[in-house]
């Protein structure tokens, strides 16, 4: 009996091969990183200097607004486009699969290729501008790359793909008979959407929206490649990398990262506070 218990206890040693590396490589750095934000390079002792610096130097605190100014409008637009497209094609429709596939396609390309593609398409001599010029709509090409607009477009394309990829499955879980029931009871399409479809999918949509928003707050390569990382698209991660790789100031770099994490947390709690105020639960009751 004792033998057996002992053997069972020893089994839990099998957890160690994965736990030890994680403690060393993840938990310890995470804690150390947190402590680092209260330290200065080369000096001992704890101080709030990094945070003071962050919130008093516009070079740092501007990143909050710059990131949010870029990412929040982009993710709202992404949500509208992705929802609009997936809602429209949700019932079996000819070509629906192709439309969904193409909408999600940028995800497989990945951020870097999408960034380059946005440049190729929207640059002053790219198809977008030349078409508009040839149609006589504009005389001078728009400057849509290496600035806010470029990063914005690239974000919208990637974010739409991400949200759409999640929505397609979610919309599939809502029984089309619910909508049919509402319609036969006299509801117009809009009322059916407002009173049946939306309340049922709302909590899931908000979750995906929050996930996407959080991901985009950590935007980096897009801000660097199609944006203007020196000013307009100087996001959290751009600054963090600058501190870490150019100034080798890991303390400041991590301070930026922590502020970013807190921002993400705030955004998340706002979205979830909104989410809590509606129906959260299964879209099917059939027994």
């Amino acid at each position: 009996m004792n033998q057996e218990v002992f053997a069972k206890k020893r089994d839990y040693l099998l957890l160690l091969p994965s736990l030890i590396p994680l403690l060393l490589l993840f938990v310890y750095p995470l804690l150390k990183g947190f402590v680092m934000t209260f330290q200065q390079p080369e000096t001992a002792g704890l101080t709030l200097a990094n945070y003071v610096e962050f919130f008093t130097n516009s070079n740092y605190y501007d990143t909050i607004w710059r990131t949010l100014y870029l990412v929040v409008p982009a993710s709202i637009i992404e949500l509208f486009i992705a929802f609009g497209i997936t809602y429209f094609i949700r019932e079996k429709m000819r070509g629906g699969g192709i439309i969904a596939g193409l909408t999600i396609f940028p995800l497989t390309l990945g951020s870097i290729i999408v960034d380059m593609a946005v440049i190729a398409f929207f640059k002053p001599t790219g198809w977008f501008n030349t078409t508009l010029i040839n149609m006589g709509l504009i005389d001078e090409p728009f400057t849509l790359v290496y600035n806010y607009a470029g990063a914005f477009i690239a974000l919208v394309i990637l974010g739409t793909a991400f949200i759409a990829s999640n929505l397609v499955g979610m919309m599939g879980t809502i029984d089309p008979n619910l909508e049919r029931a509402a319609r036969t009871l006299g509801a117009s399409r809009w009322v059916t959407f407002k009173r049946v479809f939306w309340p049922l999918i709302r909590s899931n949509v908000l979750t995906v929206f929050a996930l996407n928003l959080i991901m985009q707050i950590g935007v980096y390569s897009t801000a660097v490649i199609v944006g203007n990382p020196a000013s307009e698209t100087r996001t959290f991660v751009v600054v963090a990398f600058e501190e870490a790789m150019r100034n080798f100031n890991y303390n400041m770099a991590n301070t930026v990262a922590i502020v970013m994490g807190i921002t993400q947390l705030l955004v998340l709690s706002i979205v979830f506070a909104i989410r809590k105020r509606g129906y959260i639960g299964s879209a099917s009751t059939f027994k």
Binding site: P29, L30, V237, A253, M260, G261
Partner: peptide
């Protein structure tokens, strides 16, 4: 946690270490 948390949070201290 490691793949839900923003990777920057552990990446910077790991790099420093």
């Amino acid at each position: 946690l490691p793949f839900t948390l923003p990777d920057l949070l552990y990446a910077i201290p790991v790099a420093s270490i």
